[in-house]
Nucleic acid binder design. Structure first.
Lengths: 246, 246
DNA sequence: TGCGTTTCTCAGAGAAATCACAGGTTGTCG
DNA sequence: CGACAACCTGTGATTTCTCTGAGAAACGCA
């Protein structure tokens, strides 16, 4: 089931109307806190654990609808945790966190059951998007929820990664896509450059803050080109997207 | 009966609308878990057993619509298990798992009765496809479900392994065929290289991830050659297939 | 055993994406 | 109106990703 909150954001809910529950497992406190904050902001209920033992215990009692699991834990191997987790909750989808260079060996076979993974350092938008995808496909959330964001005549499909405005297909790069997704998931709301940087770029991004301006500029060229603009600047505050009319 | 899930995937269901039930029998825990995960993701109900005794017991109580049976079990011969299984469930189709070099006439003889087999190491696509075939033919699922995938003017017959585009027959190698089947079973959805590798290549594949690129390249040569392309790259995300128009 | 086919590795070419930098433009406020 | 800050965007260097040819190894079959 989906509902639309007063701010215009669409939330995933479970069929009985209660919030989705997510368990976050990582040994770095900074990561669990970063994730917990971001996922709570999605309206989900979050618990976290710092090791495998804690993860199993919490899972047993908390019964999450999805799990975010770092493959590198202090007390036990990620695969072991996965196995025990599966024994407790056979159908829960898992989003793996893994170091970029470890992708080749350990991850093999893990996405086969419909699970997914992101590599560290990740962007929060990416994690949230993938979790939403997992939860949606697992059936923990209402099946009616779909993967298409719509603002005015602008459309973004999270499954096919297709974007179109007024029927015209628009090609976006990966970063442009994530930025637009973030804007469209928060229509009519001003998002500061800092917020955008925090959500769309990876948490260890150390570059100039004006990448955001740059990418907004790219997006405008592709989306607003010769049309009624949808992306607006609020000088000193940030950016927002809204339907062209109004 | 088949229904189409929100992702556009087609699911097998039993005539009464309940999910198909599959029993997985293998002594290696990693294999039963891999299979359970993948088959659950198909929307099926899974039970597993680690030896012949357990298999018989579980079968008696679980009444599966199909069985995946490793021929090499610790406590008894695969044929013995099969015999007892048949006593419990005379009509249930069986998918044998067997080591590559052990493909004797014994197996060949057994499959004459409508059963089937795959050799280890297998790919999940192969197991799923064969199971779907067995279940479909056994009548446990609705007969109307058929074995032809269609995307635009591209057609793939899972039974005859025939592929054609706009009427022209296209010869594919085994790997090309499985890759295309996976793409066509998930049309208009971006599939990452990791997902493709996990589903289409065998679970013990330890090679370079760029085989996927290579085989996509092969497929394009055969399917898109001189035509409107159907296979598309989403840089940084993966690949997807969709009808040429649109 | 020998030959054609298939699978896969490797590596280089090429294309695309990302980002820093810097000069130009616009808006705001005294 | 002028000055400053915020914002926009062209240019190009660098990095990353993808494609594909060539050939080695494994396989299947006669």
């Amino acid at each position: 089931m989906t509902t639309t909150s007063p701010q215009g954001r669409t939330e995933l809910l479970r069929p009985d109307g209660s919030p989705v529950r997510v368990l976050v497992v990582d040994d770095e406190l900074s990561i669990t806190e970063l994730l917990s904050m971001a996922l709570r902001y999605e309206g989900w209920q979050i618990r976290s654990a710092g090791d495998g033992t804690g993860a199993i215990q919490t899972a047993r009692e908390f019964r999450p609808d999805a799990v975010v699991l770092d493959m590198m834990l202090p007390d036990m191997d990620g695969l072991t945790v996965l196995g025990r987790l599966r024994r407790e909750l056979p159908d829960v989808p898992v989003l793996f966190l893994t170091a970029k260079d470890a992708v080749e060996d350990r991850i093999a076979g893990l996405t086969a059951g419909g699970d997914d993974y992101v590599t560290k350092p990740f962007s929060l938008e990416e994690v949230v998007a993938r979790l939403r995808g997992l939860i949606r496909r697992s059936g923990a959330a209402d099946r009616r929820s779909d993967s298409v964001l719509v603002v005015g005549d602008l459309t973004l499909d999270e499954d096919s990664h297709e974007v179109s405005r007024a029927g015209d297909n628009i090609h976006l790069t990966a970063t442009e896509f994530e930025l637009l997704r973030f804007l469209m998931r928060n229509p009519r709301r001003v998002l500061s450059k800092a917020q955008i940087l925090d959500r769309v770029w990876s948490y260890d991004f150390g570059g100039q803050a004006n990448v955001v301006e740059l990418y907004i500029s790219y997006l405008r060229r592709k989306i607003d080109a010769g049309r009624e603009p949808m992306i607006h600047t609020r000088r000193g505050a940030g950016y927002l997207i809204k339907p062209a009319a109004s």
